[in-house]
Design a protein around this nucleic acid. Structure first.
Length: 539
RNA sequence: GUCCCCAUCGUCCAGAGGCCUAGGAUUCAGCCCUUUCAAGGCUGAGACACGGGUUCGAAUCCCGUUGGGGACGCCA
């Protein structure tokens, strides 16, 4: 596939080029997004390009399906890629599974220059050496016993029925030094490095080789990735220089740690994180939104460690990005709120922290809340409506009347709607009068009290005569009523709220009554009164 | 086990020898506001892991201890 492309040296471009290399796993990890964000920001900051490369050297057949949620996640977050899957680019293809001939070519060159050798050891033989090293409490180093130094060696091994993998012939002396843009000067003893396999016996090649070749082929200037890769860097540098490439700059960012802990955040440890109360609260909240909006909850993706969780619950992508930016990076001692442009304008690798930081979903929620407050009503309506549609509370698409209702509710609920899915806390404004569910506790506390029923009936009659039917008028009416009855405001307002909305809590009652309109309000009060009467007689 | 890294409030960060009786955010507690719930306002609690140096002076530099973590694949 590499066609007529000249293979050896790409001219080092003047522009910054970064990449994020997802492997098609079917989900986008929150820590991965943070790394991707740093890459994206750095490229945008310097007017360069950000690209996506698909690390599918271990290819299975459903790469496309497993990649889609990841690309969707990037799109949702607004992290656009200049080159990569779906958009292509001048260095296509961007799938490692399609670049095999480039890797094979590189392996040949490595072999030709003596930077690599054909190795005929079997897995068991390597394993035996490894165990021996373990027993001697020393770091394993392959003996090179089955290394084919000549064609004759190779022929002899092959006659034994052995098949060759290709290993790097790592230096056994000296040190590999390089300057990491986050960690400063780092040094690794060459003598401690393995003779890593770069090509399997079946001819397929491995990640490190592919990565080094691709980074060169794609003219990547800055490799910004998680620290897990720090110790992989010497072997990649070895490959890179053996191939005659100019190495990119490296920046290894710390991993994102588990909530309240220090170990690496892992998608597979959800059960353990749920023991963390705050984490569980976020999860439960999301779960209730998902249930009510009938979102399919798969343990694979409905997980606060996976980005899709936040989309499903109605978080704002900018809030997530803003929060993630601050996990391991800061501008100064007080700036926390960043618009996308501000992030781009201020981001720098120098200010990335060296220590791992734990993921705090509660602080993320705080960012989300503030972000939501900053959005106008129209925007909040646009985000909330799909949740109501999925819950079957409005038609899809909603009628003009429904849309007006959504707008009224969202405006009245104001800051109570912290994630778009929170709109589902107010189903009573979208349900038929007879469908409104009563909170039993609230009903007992506010309505099942001596004297409440007759008073509620008197208030109902006053309400019926009240015009115009708006919040300000209700407030006046209520105060007049309270004075006439010689009671405190709390002695009637809670009863009205429970009767009309079924709940003890909610946004301003007067706004609520106005939104519902006279017919619904009166019908609901009558219904509550009837329920009170029937249950009293039953009891 | 071997190699490497990290270490400031519960959590995220600021701090690059004197501006630090350590600052901001979040969380938590109390108060105010209030028809409930939120929001908001105010107040408060809360940290330089420990031990040695260096220095007139150390959260900041050095060494050690302890603790935590990561990497050690014919995975990516």
């Amino acid at each position: 596939m590499s066609g007529g492309r000249s293979t050896d040296y790409n001219p080092r471009p003047m522009t910054v080029r970064t990449r994020f290399a997802p492997s098609p796993t079917g989900y986008l990890h929150i820590g991965g997004v943070r790394t991707a964000l740093f890459n994206w920001l750095f490229a945008r900051r310097h007017g360069g390009q950000f690209l996506l490369r698909v690390d599918d050297t271990d290819a299975e057949r459903n790469v496309a399906a497993a990649l889609r949620p990841i690309l969707d996640g990037f799109r949702w977050l607004g992290l656009d890629w200049d080159e990569g899957p779906e958009v292509g680019g001048p260095y296509a293809p961007y799938y490692q599974s399609q670049r095999g001939d480039r890797y094979a070519e590189a392996v040949e060159r490595l072999l030709a220059t003596g930077a690599a050798y054909r190795d005929y050891a079997t897995g068991d033989e390597i394993q035996a050496e490894r165990e021996e090293a373990q027993r001697d409490k020393r770091r394993f180093l392959y003996s090179r016993r089955w290394m084919a130094e000549t064609d004759a060696d190779a022929a002899r091994f092959e006659a034994e029925g052995r098949r060759a993998a290709v290993r790097l012939k790592m230096p056994r002396e000296g040190a590999c030094r390089f300057r990491d843009l986050v960690r400063g000067d780092v040094e690794f003893e060459w003598g401690l490095e393995q003779d890593h396999v770069v090509q399997r016996a079946d001819g397929t090649c491995l990640y490190h080789l592919a990565s080094a070749v691709d980074d060169h082929d794609f003219a990547i200037t800055h490799v910004i990735r998680a620290v897990e890769h720090l110790s992989n860097t010497p072997r990649q540098l070895f490959i890179t220089t053996a191939l005659g490439y100019e190495p990119p700059a490296f920046a290894h960012v710390p991993y994102v740690a588990a909530p309240g802990g220090a170990e690496k955040l892992s998608k597979r440890k959800l059960d353990r994180y749920l023991r963390h109360h705050e984490f569980k609260a976020i999860y439960d909240r999301g779960l209730s939104v998902a249930e009510r909006s009938r979102i399919e909850v798969s343990p694979e993706t409905f997980n606060p460690v996976v980005v899709d969780f936040y989309r499903a619950v109605g978080y704002d992508p900018d809030a997530l990005l803003n929060y993630l930016l601050l996990v391991g990076w800061s501008l100064d001692d007080r700036t926390e709120r960043f618009t996308r442009d501000e992030m781009v304008a201020h981001f720098s690798l120098e200010r990335i922290n060296r220590a791992a930081a734990s993921f705090d979903p509660v602080k993320l929620a705080a960012f989300q809340e503030r972000r939501m407050q900053a959005l106008g009503v129209d925007e909040r309506v646009a985000r909330a409506t799909p949740f109501l549609e999925r819950a079957g509370l409005v038609a899809a698409p909603p009628s003009p009347a429904e849309l007006a209702r959504v707008r009224d509710v969202v405006a009245a609920a104001g800051e109570r709607i912290k994630v778009a899915g929170d709109v589902l806390d107010y189903p009573e404004f979208f349900q038929a009068d007879g469908d409104v569910a009563y909170d039993g506790k609230a009903f007992d506390k506010r309505l099942r009290k001596d004297g409440v029923a007759p008073r509620l009936r008197r208030f109902r009659d006053r309400l019926e005569a009240t015009r115009p039917f708006d919040a300000a008028t209700f407030e006046r009416t209520l105060h007049e009523f309270v004075e006439a009855e010689g009671i405190r405001i709390g002695q009637v307002i809670h009863a009205v709220r429970v009767a009309v909305t079924g709940k003890a809590v909610g946004f301003g009652l007067f706004e609520g009554l106005a939104i519902l309109g006279p017919d619904a309000c009166l019908a609901r009060i009558d219904r509550a009164l009837a329920r009170l009467a029937s249950q009293d007689s039953a009891a």
